[in-house]
């Protein structure tokens, strides 16, 4: 095939983006697990792992710039590179959010909200991101559109969870239960931030899907 080395470079870029996504998703999963088990060692590993993600991000950014400067891509190749460029930005942000989970784990004193299943919501977001990357790898536009709809469900769950936390807090107050204000503050704020971060990860997954749709069909429908 003509321009074989150029083709190889495009394929390498795709592989690298997928590798970065695996790395990030792994970090995120570890973050969730650390949060669930209050595992401080795991939390530290997550936090320290962010350097690797950032380095990878810079490398891939350089690769995209090289490809544009040296190979003059056009049409679908150009959309692919542009989309990949934006997707690694989203992935890097997810990496940062995963690090936040590690931070929250370290800050936590105790978890007190059995009604709120953070893990379930977190898993949902993780699945979304995984599916989004699969859609990117396979250029599956149907999956992209479907993902956008799942985000509505995630947002709903997050809103519910946040409300549940605040309601619980208010009810506790009304109960008159003896509580340690400081501990409570940290716990609540930590939990609310976690929920918000999980929702953000869902949004990033939708971004990935949106960019993928644009890359394959030049359709910016999902890019609002």
């Amino acid at each position: 095939m003509a321009r074989q080395s150029y083709q190889d470079q495009l394929d390498d870029l795709r592989e690298d983006v997928l590798y970065m996504s695996e790395l990030v998703i792994d970090r995120y999963r570890m973050g969730l697990e650390a949060l669930e088990r209050q595992d401080e060692d795991l939390a530290w590993r997550v936090i320290e792992g962010d350097d690797e993600v950032n380095e990878l991000y810079l490398d891939l950014e350089g690769d995209c710039v090289d490809l544009v400067a040296l190979q003059q891509p056009v049409a679908s190749d150009l959309r692919f590179i542009a989309a990949s460029f934006k997707i690694i930005t989203d992935l890097e942000r997810v990496g940062d959010l995963a690090t936040n989970l590690g931070d929250y784990t370290l800050d936590a004193t105790k978890s007190r909200f059995p009604d709120v299943d953070v893990q379930a919501i977190g898993d949902l977001a993780r699945e979304m991101l995984e599916d989004a990357m699969v859609a990117y790898a396979e250029e599956d536009v149907a999956a992209c559109r479907e993902l956008a709809e799942r985000d509505d469900e995630l947002d709903r769950l997050c809103t519910e969870a946040s409300r549940a936390v605040v309601r619980d807090l208010i009810e506790r107050e009304l109960d008159g239960t003896e509580v340690d204000v400081e501990d409570l503050l940290v716990d609540v704020s930590r939990l609310l931030l976690t929920i918000r971060d999980i929702e953000r990860i869902g949004d990033h997954a939708v971004n990935v899907a949106a960019r993928t749709l644009y890359m394959v069909e030049n359709d910016d429908e999902l890019l609002y």
């Binding site: 470079q9 490398d59 350089g62 690769d63 090289d66 040296l70």
Partner: peptide, 8 residues
């Protein structure tokens, strides 16, 4: 062909 900056 990813080449880094270097002094030449």
């Amino acid at each position: 062909m990813s080449q880094d900056n270097m002094t030449d």
